[in-house]
Every structure is written in C-alpha cells, then in structure tokens.
Amino acid sequence: MAPHPEFPAITVYKDVYPGIDLDTRLKDAAKGKVVYITGASRGVGESTVYAYAKAGASGLFITARSANVLASVAESARKISTSVAVEPYGLDITDEKAVGESVKKCIEKFGRIDIVISNAGYMEKWKKIGEANPDEWWKTMTINIRGTFNVVHHTIKHLVAAKGYAVLLSSFGAQARMLGASGYQTSKHAINRFVEFIQVEYGSDGVKVFSVHPGGIVTELALNEPSIVELLQDKVEVASHSIVRLTSGSEDYLSGRFVSCTWDLDELAKRRKEIEEGDLLKNRLDIGSLTDPLQS
C-alpha cells in the first residue's frame, strides 16, 4: 500500500488572493481587538503587526528580543492606522517569568487579550544528528517549544475570558524528514500536537487555536539554512493576511488543526464536512493496512 499523501488537493497561493484581502473580504476583520504578538520585529511577525493594524485592531502588544527594532515597527503600524495603540516590549520568550511580566503589562495597558500570535522561533544549521552542535539543536527546542509553552501558559486564562484565538507558527517541515533538520522539524511537529492539546483542554471554554504553516518565505531565520532558500517563493503577506482571517471568526471549525496559510481558505471551507467527520489535519500514527487482521 502506498503511503497516505500529506498534501491536500487544495489550490495554493503564493501571494494575497481575494479571500484574504484586507481591503475587501477582511476589511475591519480585527476591529476593536487586542493582539499580543511575539517575534514581531521582522519577517512574518512584523507583517502580522501591520496586517492587524490595517484590519482595525485597537491594541497591539508587540514583543521581540530586538527592542530597538520594535520601536520602528510600532511607528510604522501607527502610520497604517491612526487609531491603533501599539506597545512595544523587549522580550525573550524562553524566560518564563519575563513572559509572565509582559502579559501583565499587556493587561495593564489594554485590559484584555483577544488574540495571541506565537511567532518567535529558531532554526539550527542543518546537520546530521551525530554531527550537530548539541547546544544549537537544543536552542531550537528551547525557543520553539518551551518559548511557545511560556506564551500560551501565561495568556490562556485571558483567551478563556475573551473566548479568543491563539495562532502558533508551525511549518510543513513538521511533516517532513529532511536530512539534518531533526531539531527544527521535530519541534514543529511538537507544536502541531501542542495545539491539539490546547483544543482538548480549552476548546470547551471558547478558545480557538490553530497551528499554521506560514508559507515558504525568505526570512532571517530561513537564511540559516542556505539549501532551502531557493524553495522559498511565497510573499510574507500570504501568511499575515491568512492569520487575520483565521482569527476573524469564519474559520473556527479549523480550531485544533494544522492549516497552511497558502491554502485557499474558501476552497477548504467547502470540504468542512470531510475535515470534521474525518477529524483531519491532525497529527496521528498511520497504521494503514494493519487495521485489517493478519490472514492465516
């Protein structure tokens, strides 16, 4: 039996399409919302700040280790929307106590958190396990898993209060087994499962959560592995605009699942019944024909 495919028959976009256009379909999609974003100084995080500002968010609490760069991002966001309040905050998400303090500051500033975007991440230089730098390998795990846990741990009660949204950045790499990528791809696979746990534990409280592949985007993080750069041809806005749509209320049926920001979300919605009845877009062990009894 051939292995089950891991890529759905869904139209893929490399740039903004009508379903995620902030000027039309998603105009005011985040109106009045308070959004907490990590890794907001560049790449997908920076683009997401601008997308929520344009979509009408009232408050943006933006964090990254590069506090000086955040100030510039905040200023750019204010130019996009004169009504949005932006609070930049220097933060290392691996510092659990510092994450807790940042959440307190956000609540003091805005009174609530409606949406959390856990975007900060890291990728080690790709080498086979026996040749890898152990400190680099574990740095990937610490930032991508522990850091994400810290963010969810400290924001989840506020998302319960708001019946809000969490978006955790994953990757199609979570399903791949590329030589040398054991740290990064394992960490992203773990993120997918972590999202499923959030759904199990807090879905009944009204929290919606998604694990997303942002697309193949050239970022400073991706440049850490030159071998994949030629594969990265997607615009960063396909990620940030799709994230706005996922937290707008129209895609709540995808909560607890993996979603690629490059997928046509309108086309995917037409297959909602398949997704829900088959409990698709989740991590699971494929046992294939082993479901059938052994024939003597």
Rank of each mutant, 00 (worst) to 15 (best):
L168S: 03
H153Y: 12
T155D: 05
G164I: 06
T148V: 09
K97D: 07
I198T: 05
R193C: 12
V160I: 12
D92Y: 09
S118V: 14
L159H: 00
P88R: 09
R146C: 11
T155W: 05
A161F: 02
F172V: 15
L169I: 15
G130Y: 03
T148P: 04
T155Q: 01
T94K: 13
K125D: 06
R112T: 10
K104I: 10
T155G: 07
K109W: 12
Y202S: 00
F197L: 13
V195P: 10
E101Q: 10
A98Q: 06
G164K: 02
I107D: 05
H154S: 09
F149N: 07
K188R: 14
A176G: 04
N119F: 01
G206A: 03
T148R: 05
I93G: 05
V103T: 00
F197A: 08
G90K: 02
N144T: 08
V167Y: 03
S204E: 15
Y202T: 08
T140H: 01
A190M: 14
D135V: 14
F172W: 09
L179G: 04
F197M: 12
H153N: 14
D92F: 00
K125L: 02
A166R: 01
V152T: 10
S171Q: 12
F194W: 03
Q199R: 14
A174M: 12
A162T: 13
F149R: 06
K163I: 04
E108N: 13
Y202P: 03
F194M: 11
P134R: 07
A161G: 09
L169Q: 09
R146P: 09
I191N: 03
I145K: 01
G121K: 08
H189L: 14
Y184R: 01
A132I: 07
Y202L: 06
M178Q: 14
A166K: 01
L168D: 12
A190S: 15
P134C: 03
V103C: 05
G147F: 04
H154D: 07
A181F: 01
A85Q: 14
